[in-house]
């Protein structure tokens, strides 16, 4: 399994955070998916995880989010508040959007802003501001069940903005998005990096981030 990182990460400055993954091994269903994987991401950087289907991109993100146990190796987020565990400093965007179809867009986002963003932070955006970023202000009162797949994805992306968390773990974030929405989301990701955030994104498509480094996972066995 190849582990080439295009740009070696510089050491973090004061107050900056750094995600360090060393010799991470994860198996699922008795099969070793990730074998001694090492990389690091610093504040303001984005890492694009690429690789063919089955290479372990989603597995890596779930392991980073603390949703999968790892057999060996370590995952650490240095530089953040020491009493907060890594999953609680991360946003995880999976294939599913985490939205209740019976509730309106506004109710869904309001819930996640209060549930995930318990610490008051100047970087937390209001629901209206987050919806403005993804361009969904006009349908804030619509039930999520009535939205298209792309619109639901944009609501899920707005969730990342209502509660500030430094580390974004994005699994195919651009699924079902149109060109304009991709550009808006690329701008939101650049803003997040500028605010000192870190992004690890698994994707087949260009994210629109020029300065992102790449982690290529090997082919599926």
């Amino acid at each position: 399994m190849s582990r080439d990182i295009a740009q070696p990460a510089p050491p973090p400055a004061d107050g900056a955070m750094r995600l360090c993954v060393e010799n991470l091994s994860v198996s699922r269903g008795g099969r070793l998916i990730l074998d001694r994987l090492s990389f690091s991401v610093s504040s303001g950087q984005a890492l694009v995880v690429s690789g063919p289907n089955g290479a372990g991109k989603s597995t890596l993100l779930r392991a980073l989010a603390g949703l999968l146990p790892h057999m060996a190796g370590s995952i650490a987020l240095a530089g953040g508040p020491s009493d907060v565990e890594l999953p609680q400093q991360a946003h995880y965007l999976a294939h599913s959007d985490g939205l209740k179809s019976a509730l309106t867009v506004e109710e869904n986002l309001d819930f996640w802003s209060r549930y995930l963003g318990q610490e008051p932070d100047p970087r937390n955006r209001s629901v209206d501001a987050a919806l403005a970023v993804v361009g969904l202000c006009r349908i804030a009162g619509a039930p999520v069940g009535a939205l298209s797949a792309g619109q639901k994805r944009r609501v899920a992306l707005a969730r990342l903005l209502v509660a500030f968390r430094p580390l974004w773990l994005l699994d195919e974030p651009l699924t079902a998005l149109d060109r304009a929405s991709r550009e808006k989301f690329a701008a939101a990701m650049r803003d997040h990096c500028a605010e000192g955030g870190l992004i690890v994104a698994a994707t087949h498509e260009p994210l629109g981030l020029d300065e992102a480094s790449t982690l290529a996972l090997g082919s599926a066995a």
Binding site: A65, G66, Q88, Y92, S96
Partner: peptide
């Protein structure tokens, strides 16, 4: 089950609560 299907359950694991 509804939370597991729409992905909310994964997000509950990531909350401080």
């Amino acid at each position: 089950q509804a939370d597991a299907e729409d992905g909310s359950l994964d997000l509950f694991h990531l909350a401080e609560t």
